[in-house]
Amino acid sequence: MLRVDGLNAHYGRAHILADVALTAAKGEVVVLIGRNGAGKSTTMKCLIGLLRPTSGEIRFEEKRIDRLAPHAIARLGLGYVPEERRIFTDLTVMENLEVGKRPPRPGLQPWTAERLFTLFPNLGEMRNRPGGRMSGGEQQMLTIARTLMGNPACVLLDEPSEGLAPVIVEQMVETIRKLKLEGLSVLLSEQNLHFAALVADRAYVIEKGRIRYEGTMSALAEDEAVRAAYLSV
């Protein structure tokens, strides 16, 4: 579904990503785990085309996408949920969803606002509320719902649990599991190992822009040495 090889990225002269390689199969939940500043968000931005990688190859459903514009990548079925949420605060919930709307994708059940409101019941109760007058948790749900309106085959979730209350984090776990059941692939970035362990099938540990570990989530959970080296604060 998604395959990244030898990805390098720079901000100015700073080398942010060094030979990042990862894959995500259909229906798989993969976590990119690492500390603050390890290069998680940069990887995500390269994948969706908001940042042009200096070298490397990104393939989505076998098609090269690393030189495409963000909208072209999104249209191929790669959905992006940014870390900062980036809700359109002047727009209502319904209007935010409208911006994300794209035609249905063959083989996947199309998302509608109504179907999303069964997944995120809170949103259904505030259809005409401007995005700027929602809580952080509600905004996080809306930003995911907005991306799902594009009927993506694979979703990039950049630190979905960040700054959320525990009860909302639980809801997030549920949401990701449901997306997996829908047959979607999910690539999420996380600092929170506990959260990742609840949802992910496989994990990549990233540190200083390099992939340091690759394995199943359960293997990582048991690998004390890797966790101590790359994840403890």
């Binding site: 969706i48 085309g49 908001l50 514009a69 963000p70 909208h71 999104a74 249209r75 992006y80 940014p82 980036r86 359109f88 605060t89 002047d90 727009l91 209007e95 935010n96 409208e98 911006v99 994300g100 794209r102 907005r146 991306t147 594009g150």
Partner: peptide, 18 residues
């Protein structure tokens, strides 16, 4: 709606496929 969204955050609008 797209115009109003782009007024706020045009890159995000692009990342949503517009």
């Amino acid at each position: 709606v797209l115009v109003r969204a782009a007024t706020q955050d045009r890159d995000m609008v692009g990342a949503l496929g517009v």
